[in-house]
């Protein structure tokens, strides 16, 4: 079985890899590019732990083939902080204790960042529906929603 050669950009860095046609983008990120921030919680697009953006669009990387990354811009949780400066969402998640085990956190941060880029002033309901595809089993979502709303406020005030 021949492998596919793919050239893509991940968190701003140009990257090449070979993958089996059946490998998902999540498999490639984790097993070939060593970017294990995206997690596989279900493999069926139901939990959002593998969330990344492709050309700015939020997707589950488990529902994208590695081969489809050709020529795309991929962004993962590893690219959210700028150097040693955390993104406001990252800071607020720590500050609000918006994570317990932390397995869903990378996916939720990627998804929430995507929301705030599209809608800087979301209502609580909008945040809840936007994040409905990101399962968290620990927190009951309360502190996650608060952290996202607080980060949005801070980002609006800063801009």
């Amino acid at each position: 079985m021949s492998k596919i050669h793919v050239t893509t950009t991940v968190n701003g860095d140009e990257t090449e890899f070979l993958c089996d046609p059946r490998e998902t983008l999540l498999d490639v990120l984790r097993d070939r590019l060593n970017l294990t921030g995206a997690k596989e919680g279900c493999g069926t697009g139901d939990c959002g732990a593998c969330s990344v953006t492709i050309d700015g669009r939020l997707v589950c990387s488990c529902l994208v083939l590695g081969a489809e990354a050709e020529g795309k811009e991929i962004a993962t949780v590893e690219g959210i902080a700028e150097g040693d400066t955390l993104h406001p969402l990252q800071r607020k998640f720590i500050e609000h204790a918006a994570l317990q085990c932390g397995i869903c956190t990378p996916g939720i941060l990627v998804a929430a960042k995507s929301l705030l880029e599209k809608n800087p002033n979301p209502t609580e309901t909008e945040v809840r529906y936007w994040l409905a595809g990101n399962l968290c089993r620990c927190t009951g979502y309360d502190k996650i929603i608060r952290a996202v709303m607080d980060a949005a406020t801070e980002m609006r005030e800063a801009s």
Partner: peptide, 9 residues
């Protein structure tokens, strides 16, 4: 149909 993520695809 599906989540925000699924809507992206």
């Amino acid at each position: 149909v599906g989540s925000t993520q699924v809507q992206g695809r």
